[in-house]
Amino acid sequence: MVTAKHPKVGVLALQGDVREHVRVLSGLGADVVPVRRPSELDEVQGLVIPGGESSVMDKLARSFGLFESLRQRIRSGMPVYGTCAGLIMLADRVEDASPGQQTLGGLDVTVRRNAFGSQLESFETELSVPSVADEPMHAVFIRAPIVESVGDAATTLASLGDGRVVAVEQGNLIGTSFHPEMTGNTVFHEYFLRRVRAVADTASATP
């Protein structure tokens, strides 16, 4: 049994900036494994869905039987943190989806893909995330999605100066439009790992 102090967490490794997330999570003391198959998902107590191309992750997850397992784990309360494409994967509704694109869902939000435009509109900025970090954090947006509307069940964690929502949570699910794994700021990963430890503690306390 993995101790709650060093929880075993996965990074969905179908495509995207997997290595960046593995590095941050390992640095925070987590036991990290890449997840491409249902058997690998079974072994983890939490999952990060990285940045990348959401339409590609969706296709690969469905081709290799991972999609339904992921949905079941999300429904049963596994903590999941999604960045950029990961946020799209966790959204219940997606605007400007690739034809036939599906999402795992779980976050009661509508997310718009590539909401800022082409790569020329990708940017870095300072962002205040009061419930997660005391200080404003540096945030990198790359062909990023935004949360167009937040349903009753989800909570906004951060917005840009113009009010556009870029970070949300609901239960054990966290999603950000931006990439903390690229800046060295670990507050979101710590926030995620606290959820993983809390769920693991509850599970081990149950007789």
Partner: peptide, 8 residues
């Protein structure tokens, strides 16, 4: 960063 998102 965009190239990192294309990895894999």
């Amino acid at each position: 960063g965009l190239a990192k998102m294309l990895k894999g």
